[in-house]
Design a protein around this nucleic acid. Structure first.
Lengths: 203, 203
DNA sequence: CACGATATTGACCGCTCGTTCCAGAACGGG
DNA sequence: CCCGTTCTGGAACGAGCGGTCAATATCGTG
């Protein structure tokens, strides 16, 4: 071969991700990327094709990271509901790190769907994976008697995922971590089976 | 005076709203607006100032309409929780009318916040009004014994509002009205006080 | 060490953007 | 009825867009 790359493709993708995350797809100009990535225009186009492909790869990287967080933090031991609550807190904390920009996935859905099929496939897959993980966790919670009988594990999973998307929106309007946390706490208070007065143990 | 306007400003705002709603702010070009509104560029700029002011006025009109829907549909009589559930269904149905474009407010928050202060003020006000209306409704529900004791009316209101924002996001990924309805149903199932076995009436 | 191959850069391209401006059209008042 | 005023439509503008390309630099290889 010949002259090798002088940049790390993944590191470049991370920086592009941050830019698209903060500004959105349309509002991010190639000149912004050139400046932020420290590469010439030609290098960017040679490595990633065009602006849209670069965006898709950056988004895919973000989604992968999110899914990895969920997959590694949810295991088969310990209190299922509490574990789920903790993982959602970590997810919100990770997204809050990017200065009130919300969630890259939510932003992309709102801006580009339903017109962008590639982004649609990406986020659909990611949502499905998260939903399956949440459902498994809530099934375990149900077996352990931690889940309210008012909802099935699948409905609970979809409810939580939907709520998190909503929290990401509201947190852009009210960037107060306590508010987001309180909202999750309220949901979990309802979702958890209250230690109701059992008829069998009643006097 | 002299030559009068040949167009209805509100009707123009409605059409501009639909365009911004479907395509987003940045992706909507003035040429799109000229074509869709049927006005010359000069007329648009004379009447509304510039693209951003036109967007803000269209968004304000949308938010006013949403708040009016909430205000008129929630009154002081009838089953409070069921009324709230019905109103959210109507809200989702109204937004679904615009062909999978989701909610104009949610889209605008995701695309333009936290950078656009004017839009931020607008949606902050709208969210506050909705939150107050929901809180009042849930306070009535609590008085009538319809609300789960696990949450305060205010927490419940914030939970519902946040959830609706999330539903609007998820519905862009999965444009299935049944899915959105099921998510709301699950939330209301948890929110409503289950007719628990009361200790005082137990054998 | 020299050559082929690839990476890098930034000037450059055509196009579209948001905005301005002006010549003509259409009204109300005197 | 005509004049002053406002509205209208579209041509025109500079800026900035996404994307290209040829010259140059830098490597692995024979």
């Amino acid at each position: 071969m010949a002259r090798p790359r002088t940049f790390d493709e993944d590191a470049i993708l991370d920086r592009a991700m941050l830019l698209f995350w903060r500004k959105g797809y349309e509002a991010t100009a190639m000149s912004d990327l050139v400046e932020e990535l420290g590469l010439g225009r030609g290098s960017i186009y040679a490595a990633f094709g065009d602006k849209h492909q670069l965006f898709v790869r950056a988004l895919a990287r973000y989604l992968d990271r999110q899914n990895t967080l969920l997959a590694t933090a949810l295991d088969d031991e310990g209190p299922a509901v509490a574990q789920l609550r903790a993982v959602l807190g970590r997810l919100l904390a990770a997204d809050a790190a990017c200065g009130n920009a919300g969630c890259f996935s939510v932003n992309s859905i709102a801006e580009l769907l339903p017109h962008d099929d590639e982004v649609a496939r990406l986020v659909r897959r990611s949502l499905r994976i998260a939903e399956e993980a949440f459902t498994r966790q809530l099934e375990r919670a149900a077996r352990d008697g931690e889940l309210s009988a008012s909802v099935t594990p699948e409905d609970g999973a979809r409810l939580l995922i939907t709520l998190v998307q909503g929290v990401q929106i509201v947190s852009k309007v009210h960037p107060d971590p306590a508010r987001s946390a309180a909202c999750l706490d309220a949901a979990f208070a309802l979702l958890a089976k209250e230690p109701a007065p059992l008829a069998t143990t009643a006097p």
